[in-house]
Design a protein around this nucleic acid. Structure first.
Lengths: 217, 217, 217, 217
DNA sequence: AGTTAAACGAGACGGTACGTCAGGTCTTACA
DNA sequence: TGTAAGACCTGACGTACCGTCTCGTTTAACT
């Protein structure tokens, strides 16, 4: 379950690691609890170990940093998310999805921790890739598929880079999550979805100016 | 000049603060130099004080944190930026602006520090507002004005919230700056500008779906 | 009044120092007050200056250390002590004197401060001589005279070094003041006076063993 | 070996503390060395830690203050003292003992440190009891026994409080150690021993005046 | 069932930096 | 010019955690 060490994922490991599941869960729980109580900034490996009734070494053995622990915990916590809707209306479906995202982002036990994790990734070089691989990409992939389905149905230009589109949409959400210059509310969500998906449809006719820009130094 | 303490800004202060300009500059220079050499993560008030030949107390007297010091230094450093272009073509002009922004973001002595500052703002509650007020808003304001000029000329819908538009555009840039899932290059810049400004123009006709989303729970 | 700087002591200064008497008294009062409230350990030049409404420099200008300030203050405070009794009975008179000394030593606003001052003298080389000259010797001198009067009357051996005798007596008192291994009470006072003055009278007959000791390596 | 923490003293500790003997000795050595070089006043936990190649926490873990460290070091250093002499002549023996004490007190690597420790005990309430228990009482006890032996032989009054007698003798020595108003030399040593022990023998006949004093207010 | 090797809890260790306190010096403005 | 005020550099404080390193003690697979 831990992303950073080459540990087989529990299932069907012939020479099973002697890792204690009890400790693993206690650590993840302690990390979440402490984070909820005092915030990520005041989280420390020391405190997690104490709270989990675990030696510090046991944490360092399986995770490279406190950020890695919390990432694991958040992934576990937020894993069972709703299925991607497909009503046929791609704008409406994206709106629904983004609404559920801002719900997650504004949850006091999730948004601040995710923000702190991204923050910590600025000083821990290993954390950004881990975040991408274990949190962001797995959740973005099915949304990208939904957009690709729309492409196949001709609802969106086939040439569109859907990953980049999602980056623009989520960029707008993360911007408010991290900078806090405005509320992460449904109005903002629909504004972002509308403007970006409108732009997707209209982008074909704007190709020339795009090329001009690319030629610019 | 310091954003965080109630120091009169030079103008018309009869009982001028006895603050030492020499120390102030030495501290800002030391912060920048150390940050460039070892990165923000390894920056410490202790080291800045030592490098600047200054007592720690002198730093704590005028800034609340190392982040505040670096913010001041970055603002000073990046202050004299190019004027906002106005060729009449709002898409091209935005493209030019965003290009200069990614130039700044990809500069090794700026982008990582800005990213680290935003990161630090996740654990230092005072830093985010300071970043907004002293770095982001002053630089965003003239760009918003450029968009408003385009609105007045009918090049963009009058009802458009230009600040929100800029949040989407810059959100996309910050997303790559902070998560590093792709290069901050001219291609990405033009993609973002085109898709968002296209969406701005087309947004009028999409109003209905937006309203529908807002009505959604 | 200050012992440590070459300031004329008020008397007969032709071109009197422009020193502010108001500040001087405020400083001494503040030192005593702070000492009484929080103890000598927590006394600081900084705090005295603040309490006295005085610049730190004004203190450093006229006293070399916080100990010097407090010494001045204590000397001023404890100056008007009772006259030396002379009933003809030297043992009884010394007893009376020592009783008044332990009264002073056990006074919560004096004993601890004097002890702290002697303590501080162990790290401030200038303080020990100052203590001797301004506090100890002036108070010991009239007692020595009382003993000398007894010598002249034949109540004590003429060869006796009365200053050394007083050192033994006061040494015993200071021992309890500083080490606190027993109460500074009248019983101890009388024990000390009796044993030492008895020893003084008997010392004549013990001369031989003393000489033997002195010859020892 | 440390007086201030409840560490079992080696004997019969089944689950022995994991305390590092290497660090302990390095700390005591460093404290002594620094004290010898720069004096107790300039001694700091910081410097001891650096000199000993030890983390500051390791010092704070086992000692409550720098004074406690030095006390431990001095006790270790001065532990193997000469046996108490018993020639039958109590005055001569006490003289011998006191001579060895002033030898210790006048040693440049001991006297000043002991004085400083007593000085520090005036502001550190925990230090005075520690000094008594770990330095003064253990060294005074066998001397008191010597006096009690003399009492049993009728050389000294049986009613004499020998601890108090030693307080008077040592008080006289500490007085010179701390106030420095005269040399701690053999002449002073023999003067003190003679006068006090003479007083002991003569004290019987002086009982009346003592009682009179005690009745005094 | 006994052996053995890992993972475990506990926590001491050498360090780094924190943010605070006070020391003693220096500068400025007022009286 | 002496003061009140207070900024300045210095250095130590005691604390919090870091990440590493023993210690014995489970604990579970493999003799």
């Amino acid at each position: 379950m831990c992303y950073a060490h080459p540990v087989t994922t529990a299932t069907s490991a012939p020479l099973a690691s002697r890792r204690s599941e009890r400790s693993r869960l206690a650590i993840l729980d302690a990390a979440l609890a402490l984070c909820a109580e005092q915030g990520y900034a005041n989280l420390s490996v020391e405190a997690v170990a104490a709270r989990a009734g675990v030696g510090k070494q046991t944490i360092y053995r399986w995770w490279p940093s406190k950020g890695a622990v919390l990432l694991d915990a958040l992934v576990r916590e937020s894993a069972p998310h709703a299925p991607i809707p497909d009503t046929g209306d791609v704008v409406a479906d994206l709106g629904t999805i983004v609404l559920s995202v801002i719900e997650l982002f504004t949850h006091p036990d999730f948004g601040p921790h995710l923000a702190a994790l991204i923050g910590d990734a600025q000083r821990d070089p290993a954390l950004a890739p881990a975040l991408l691989e274990h949190f962001i990409r797995p959740r973005r992939a099915p949304i990208a598929e939904r957009l690709q389905r729309a492409q196949r149905l001709g609802q969106l230009p086939a040439s569109l880079d859907v990953d980049a589109v999602l980056e623009v949409i989520f960029g707008a959400l993360y911007h408010r999550l991290l900078l806090r210059n405005g509320p992460l509310d449904p109005a903002y969500a629909s504004f972002v979805v509308n403007i970006v998906l409108s732009g997707c449809s209209a982008t074909q006719t704007k190709r020339r100016s795009r090329r001009r820009l690319e030629a610019d130094p």
